[in-house]
């Protein structure tokens, strides 16, 4: 009995850690521009697919990961320069729609370059699962959790301690005022897209051994990550992690104790409840709109 509960919990943590890591990517661009970047899932996909195809060409794993992350970063800059910057005076909704268009474009391109098949990436450490009290945990889950924790710490440090981070926050709060005090807002935005792409690709690489990777993995994972980010409160790094883990654990528990048919329904009802009572999510900033 206990071992079953533990198994559901581990399953939930594995799924949840994946969601959390993806949710983190949404927070950064949201912080900088209040835009929800729906191409975030595509950064994940680029990370995973580029790593897999580079290792298949004989590049050592570590170098392949670095190259994939760099490629995603370049893509993030390109996305901001070529798609977002030309529409700089458009409102947030238009920009969000642009990111959806960009995601379809990137996915199409990836399909042409890499084909449509699913690919495997080996676990970073052992393929052997870890046994705890009769339940098993995929060793890669620990990597996902660890990388997630490090990224949260880095994000918190970046936004509270560095000038660039503060500049990003300032731009998001009031673009005109930020420009008045000498912040180059377009550069800040570009930076936000680049860092977010780096973050997304790292997430894509770490979760690939669990989820497999293919050109369209970004749709699925991106959406779940967005949901996790919304539960936690968009823009909060801590919220993204808690939201992701909560979503994963609720899904696994529902599949285990209720019925696997209803697990998604339970997860989505949870979102409704959370957003109903806490419209800005669990960790969302309390914003007072001045009239």
């Amino acid at each position: 009995m206990f071992s079953e509960f533990l198994q559901y919990l581990f399953t939930g943590i594995t799924i949840g850690a994946t969601y959390a890591l993806i949710a983190l990517g949404f927070t950064l661009i949201y912080n900088a521009s209040h835009v929800i970047n729906f191409a975030q899932g595509e950064f994940l996909m680029i990370g995973g697919m580029a790593t897999v195809s580079l290792t298949a060409m004989g590049v050592p794993m570590l170098l392949a990961i670095v190259l994939a992350v760099v490629l995603a970063g370049v893509l993030g800059i390109a996305l901001q320069r070529l798609a977002i910057a030309p529409a700089k005076n458009a409102d947030v909704v238009t920009l969000i729609i642009i990111t959806i268009g960009a995601s379809i474009f990137i996915r199409g391109l990836a399909q042409l370059v890499w084909g449509k098949e699913y690919h495997v990436m080996p676990n970073f450490s052992s393929e052997e699962p870890i046994q705890i009290f009769g339940a098993v945990l995929n060793s890669q889950s620990l990597w996902v959790l660890g990388v997630g924790a490090v990224l949260v710490a880095v994000l918190v440090y970046f936004f509270t301690r560095t000038l660039t981070g503060k500049a990003i926050l300032a731009t998001s709060m009031n673009k005109d005022a930020a420009r008045l005090v000498g912040i180059r807002t377009q550069v800040v935005l570009m930076l936000a897209f680049m860092v977010s792409a780096l973050l997304g690709s790292v997430a894509g690489i770490v979760v690939a051994p669990i989820t497999f990777t293919s050109y369209d993995i970004g749709i699925i994972l991106g959406l779940k990550g967005f949901v996790a980010a919304a539960i936690g409160g968009l823009g909060s790094g801590m919220g993204a992690v808690v939201g992701g883990l909560a979503l994963g654990v609720v899904e696994a528990m529902a599949a285990g104790y209720l019925s696997s048919d209803y697990k998604d329904a339970v997860a989505f009802s949870m979102i409704l409840v959370v957003l109903f009572f806490m419209p800005r999510g669990l960790f969302g900033a309390k914003v007072v709109e001045r009239v």
Binding site: Q7, Y8, T11, T14, T211, K224, A255, S260
Partner: peptide, 20 residues
């Protein structure tokens, strides 16, 4: 009789249920 969604990334919960 268990099911999983097309986008699910982990089915250990369902398998644990079947095993039990």
């Amino acid at each position: 009789d268990e099911t999983y969604g097309g986008s699910d990334t982990d089915m250990t919960a369902q398998l644990t249920n079947i095993r039990g």
